[in-house]
């Protein structure tokens, strides 16, 4: 379970300025931390839109973090392709993997988990899949590393 307050505090201390999201039911628990924390929260209407806004912030010298569920990630492919591979901007995404834990134990027919990793690979996005033992600090560490290297990166949170 990722603590929203720890995550927001850690990302802000690492230099992040904005948090753009379309929440899912797991990341939605971070709402209060985001609403009251030091990052500027931008609620997007669609996941591709959140990536476009993040692209503008990055162009303008700021440091956004984008969060979405894998369903929205599937929709956002063209925006993601453009910002990462045409504009070469270091987009950082926190991605909720719907039904992933149930899928690994054979308890779901949801097709989302089947496609997430192949699509991440198809878009040539470096990523890591965390497990339930990981903490907010692990996400922050990945953020720091990605920003230092000025590379796009995706942290996947199994749900």
């Amino acid at each position: 379970m990722i603590c929203g307050h720890d995550l927001v505090k850690g990302l802000a201390e690492a230099g992040a300025t904005h948090f753009l999201w379309v929440p899912d039911s797991a990341m939605g628990q971070w709402e209060e931390a985001l609403r009251t924390g030091p990052l500027r929260l931008v609620r997007a209407t669609r996941e591709g839109e959140s990536i476009g806004i993040a692209g503008g912030l990055l162009l303008g010298g700021l440091q956004p973090v984008v969060a979405m569920q894998c369903t929205g990630f599937f929709e956002a492919g063209d925006a993601l392709r453009n910002i990462v591979h045409d504009l070469h901007l270091p987009l950082f995404v926190i991605l909720g993997l719907r039904s992933y834990q149930a899928y690994r134990s054979g308890r779901t027919t949801d097709s989302c988990p089947i496609f997430v990793e192949p699509i991440l690979c198809a878009w040539r996005l470096p990523y890591v899949v965390l497990d339930i033992q990981h903490t907010a600090g692990d996400i922050v560490d990945h953020y720091k590393r990605a920003w230092a290297e000025q590379k796009a990166f995706v942290v996947c949170l199994p749900e």
């Binding site: 959140s50 990536i51 806004i53 912030l57």
Partner: peptide, 8 residues
């Protein structure tokens, strides 16, 4: 969206 990010 890109323009909005730059404006922010």
């Amino acid at each position: 969206a890109l323009a909005m990010g730059l404006a922010l």
